Simulated assay, not measured.
Amino acid sequence: MTSSIRLIIKTMYKNLSQKEQAIADYILENPKKVSHSSISDIASELEVADSTIFQFTKKIGYNGFKDFKMAMLMQENDLSAISFHENIQKDDTELTMAQKVFDSNISSLTDTRKLLQEEKLIEAVDLIDASNRLFLFGVGGSEIVATDTYHKFLRSPIPVYHSSDYHLQLMEASLLTPDDCAIFISHTGRSKETIMIAETAKKIGAKTIVITSQISSPLAKLGDVTFISVSEETEFRSEALASRISQLSIMDSLFVILMFRNQDQAQESISKVRKVIAKIKD
């Protein structure tokens, strides 16, 4: 397993049981200690059975505790480098608060970039490029990401559609065809509205791309291709808000790859947009 243990835990955390979250917290807070401890040592420290620790390592993708411990030793620097810069304190100066917000965004982008896989990027752009129409779906805060993506893809050679109203989105989903591609954005991957839209699209046979922060969420499982955005919740700043910049960057990446793949058509589309916009600018 090449993915960072820290990132795996962060993307699965909300889907872990309370006991499993306690194990996850202990691992993230004591990486060096865990990597040099036996399964019995950790179980005793957490007052759980050895089998509970073993099953936890299986759940996050390892063959067992020995496989997990080997990965811990190999990734010790990554785990020890966990930064707590996002914990803004009341007595921080305004500049320090702003810097911590920037640091948190940088951390989200860095973590999300580590999870990117070239084959998934290629597959996603293949689906978009081969589609007759591209539809964007998201509700609440995710609708903002969908709107921004719509604004970008209007410059692409692919016809793109997006409605901010949920009922209109549901109606659009019902009119999709197997030749269309739909992108679904949801931080938790558990939005009932977005899941219903995605299920409607899947039944019809439309191609689906999902962007979420929860790898085990119901929505993630509905994607032909699924991208994971990583973020952490801070006081006065929800995890969903922090993940937005990572989601926007994933969409930027898909857009740029698509445009370079279709340079001639892309230049023509951009030229048309710039020409009409120029008329209303000084």
Rank of each mutant, 00 (worst) to 15 (best):
A81E: 14
N15E: 10
A198H: 14
S131A: 14
V160R: 09
Q214W: 14
I211R: 09
K221G: 02
L241F: 10
A206L: 01
V225P: 13
S17M: 00
S269F: 12
N63A: 11
M196H: 10
E268K: 11
A242V: 04
I122Q: 13
N63K: 15
E118M: 13
I195L: 15
T226L: 07
L121Q: 04
H162P: 02
D126P: 12
S35K: 08
K10P: 11
E45W: 01
T52M: 12
T234V: 11
S108Q: 02
S174Q: 12
K120Y: 12
D78Y: 01
F102G: 00
I42H: 02
T200C: 15
F84L: 02
P31I: 05
T96L: 14
K272A: 06
V256K: 08
Q263P: 07
K90F: 15
H85C: 03
G64S: 11
D126F: 12
I88L: 08
P31L: 09
L170I: 10
A43P: 11
D264V: 15
P157H: 13
I8C: 08
F135M: 14
Q169F: 12
S269Q: 08
S174I: 05
M74T: 01
A81S: 14
L115Y: 05
A98W: 08
Q214G: 09
E233A: 15
Q75R: 07
F137D: 01
A130M: 11
A49T: 07
K100C: 00
T234Q: 15
K33E: 06
I215L: 06
S246T: 11
I39P: 03
G189S: 07
D91P: 10
I197S: 08
A43M: 11
D224A: 10
G140P: 14
A146I: 12
D50N: 15
P159I: 02
E94F: 15
G138R: 05
S83R: 10
I195D: 04
S249T: 15
V34H: 09
F137Y: 10
T177A: 08
Q21S: 01
F255E: 00
Q55L: 15
A146P: 03
G223C: 05
I250A: 02
Q99N: 04
V101P: 01
L79C: 01
S271N: 03
L176M: 07
T147W: 09
L170P: 00
M251G: 02
S243M: 04
S216Q: 14
E232I: 02
I5M: 12
D129R: 04
V101Q: 09
D264G: 01
V160C: 15
I39W: 06
V256W: 06
T212A: 06
I122G: 05
S83Y: 03
L134A: 00
T149A: 02
H151L: 13
N77E: 14
M196A: 13
V256G: 01
E86F: 13
R133S: 09
M72V: 07
I280R: 12
K281V: 04
Y166C: 13
Q247S: 05
S249E: 07
S174C: 02
D252V: 00
L154F: 07
L176K: 03
R133M: 12
T52G: 05
S246W: 11
A124H: 01
T234C: 05
G138Y: 04
S191A: 10
A81G: 07
E119S: 09
I228Y: 09
L175C: 14
